[in-house]
Amino acid sequence: MSIFSQLVLNSLIAGAVYALISLGFNLIYGVTKFFNLAHGVMATIAGYSVFYFTKTLGLNLYLAVVLGIIITGLFGYALDKIIYLPLRKRKASSMVLLVASLGTFTAIQAIIAILFTSQFQTLSFNIDTSKIFNIFGGLITQTQLIILISAIAVACGLILFLYKTKFGKAVRAVTDDEEVAKIVGINTNKIISVVFFIGSAIAGLTGILVGFDTGIEPTMGLGLLLKGVIASIVGGIGSIFGGVLGAFILGFVENFGIWKISGEWKDAIAFGLLILFLIFRPTGIIRK
């Protein structure tokens, strides 16, 4: 019984991390309609910002986390202004944007590796991580509980923002049809830039949480991104609910898939799920 509850807990935690990544990814995909492969590296930027602030500058932990999230958001905003906006203005195809984001991802990841070495680091060097909760025989650490709560909070916050505020309405309008949104007087490029800020900040939060839970390394972004993309496609690309649903499905499939085999197969299982969905239901569970 206890191994079963442990697997359920592991699935929920993995699902929460994927959900956070897919929330930001889906939000950006919705307004820009391209696979932003640089999204994962935002998590890396945030993780290393917090690492720098706490370890090198000795800042207060909470201040460092908030600064890390804001800096990552600004990074996303700047990338949109410098790279994606000029491409969109030229009406570049989504493939060109995808390759540009691939370049962005490669360059930023390598720069981080130069600045901080490619060693595995942990963020939780000065906080107490010994607190462990026991739920039906499964164990969950305090950090993992925070991940779970953050995922739920961010998802709810994002849905409230999209459906209850005027700005959120504008974002949804751009997601539905950019041209029409432009015609009715929405400054679409401004909306997209702000969405890049929000999406990247959420990715940043994810990177920081993962950093506290396991640790940070320059290559962590790609794995997170790919899982976020798979979650988004399984759930329904561009749909906020779909992304969260897909993330938890992916978390469960991955963790129960390795019940009897080595944990190293996780990635292969995840991509197997993606390919199954691409073949049989490319629109995802929630059809847009």
Binding site: V96, L97, V99, A100, G103, A107, A110, I111, I114, S118
Partner: peptide, 29 residues
């Protein structure tokens, strides 16, 4: 080794921004 990757990345970005068909390519993405 890392600088190499930075150069690749920057080259990809610059090509996409200014010359999507590559140096002597015959087809644009």
């Amino acid at each position: 080794a890392q600088m190499r990757q930075v150069v690749y990345g920057v080259i990809l970005i610059l090509l996409m921004l200014y010359r999507p068909q590559g140096l002597i390519g015959e087809y644009k993405l």
